[in-house]
Amino acid sequence: MAEIMYWEALLRAQDEEMARDPMVICMGEDIGVAGGTYKATKGLFEKYGEKRVMDTPISEGGFTGLGIGASFLGVRPVIEIMSVNFAWLAMDQMFNSAAKVRYMSGGQLSAPCVFRSAGGAAHQLGAQHSARMEKVFMGIAGLRVVTPSNPKQAYGLLKSAIRSNDPVFINEHELMYNMKGEVPDSEYLHPLEGSEIARTGSDVTLFGYNISVHWCLKAAEILQTQHGISAEVIDLYCLSPLDRAGIRKSVSKTHRAVIAEEDEAPVGVGSEIIAIINEECFFELDAAPVRVHSAFVPQPYNHTLEAAAIPDHDDVIRAVLKLFGKA
């Protein structure tokens, strides 16, 4: 099992799938000759040519719709939206065309396309380049939403997404492309649904996804060594459909829950998880679930303000200690 970077995992997945199926193509801004803003398509233009690795104009609504239309006829496009902030311009096509076509055609058409996009706050990118929008995507029927927290998931989820007959949105993070992790040497398809226990524990469940899984893991380590609290970490790599059974199982064991997300709180992942906990296992709870989230502001530019707006592992620890009456 080799250790590779997150962007290399995405690249390997796309390369393998393009080699396997001539109908797999990549599209997006600067993905070809320039090799991709985050290198996820590096070298593919030279290998597969401009017909299959398409440098698009800066026309998110247009090229996303074009990819969706191609998918109606069996092409499997991997559409890279350079930053999730730009996905607003493509959402009409993603939601009104890709997500609904199967239903409104009574199952006659489907849109087997993949939308990959980098979300999250990086370093001082300001309000229009720092959004987290998974909350928007996970509320759309007909669209699958996955969000890899490590290179193995990035590789396996992208491969499975390309082979899925449904449209899949893959939520990536600007700060995670250089993260290293082990990826199986042989081909590996990650399930598009479910959740993973990233760390086993017994006193409290920490729910995270994508970057917040890492805050939760770090918090769990500190909680164990410094406070004697055993935290279980659940990696919600699939945000739609959410793994109700996995959420119930862990909370039924630990009886306490903290949800960590980089998104703002209103109408967020945390609200949805808490609703599921209420619906699935309310009477198992020993304390009210708590969510850790960003401030409800457009992302500020100033470094100190930005850090204050975004949560981290310390916020998770504080939330857990409060839950145990220790803060």
Binding site: K51, G61, T64, G67, G69, A70, F72, L73, V75, Q93
Partner: peptide
């Protein structure tokens, strides 16, 4: 764009 995408598929196929 959906129509253009279908044309892209025809071109590929």
């Amino acid at each position: 764009p959906l129509a253009a995408g279908m044309a892209k598929a025809i071109q590929m196929q």
